[in-house]
């Protein structure tokens, strides 16, 4: 039996949060100390979102996906610049997942999705700023390109 659409979307988002937490572990060690501290705060934010998602999916009788032991990173993280680039990539991807959950949820689940989208947008903007990208903001956070 297929889960209803809101649970499906939230489960996909949870899988993305698992991957984001993994990615921050991999990229944080490549950053200078000050930015590594920022990465730990971002990772903590993703853990909070993950926990909130787990609670939500449990209460909805969903079947939340478990974290995998490891995830393939989209590119090698050889230095600090690549680490920041990966952080931007991770935040843009989770923003997209949360955004996709907005339109199919309502009530507390939509509030969760809005918080997730907003936080990922904020972290993406911060990592763009640390990367020297200007502007650091995007017009429609989470919206797929094109």
């Amino acid at each position: 039996m297929t889960a209803p659409l809101p649970q499906q979307r939230l489960a996909e988002t949870l899988a993305g949060e698992h991957a984001a937490i993994y990615a921050y572990g991999a990229l944080g060690v490549r950053l200078p100390a000050a930015q590594a501290a920022v990465a730990r705060r971002a990772e903590a934010a993703h853990r909070d979102r993950r926990d909130a998602l787990l609670l939500r999916l449990d209460s909805d009788g969903g079947n939340p996906p478990a974290a995998r032991p490891a995830y393939a990173l989209p590119f090698a993280v050889a230095d600090a610049a690549a680490a920041r680039r990966l952080a931007v990539h991770v935040e843009e991807r989770t923003a997209g997942l949360w955004r996709a959950a907005l339109g199919v949820t309502e009530g507390p689940a939509r509030q969760l999705a809005l918080t997730g989208l907003t936080e990922s947008a904020l972290w993406a903007a911060r990592w763009r700023r640390y990367s020297g990208q200007a502007p650091s903001t995007v017009v429609f956070p989470g919206r797929p390109a094109g």
């Binding site: 923003a95 955004r99 907005l102 999705a113 809005l114 989208l117 907003t118 990922s120 947008a121 904020l122 903007a125 650091s136 903001t137 995007v138 017009v139 429609f140 956070p141 989470g142 919206r143």
Partner: peptide, 9 residues
């Protein structure tokens, strides 16, 4: 939601 998130940034 996109607009709200953009304004936060």
């Amino acid at each position: 939601g996109e607009i709200a998130a953009a304004r936060a940034t």
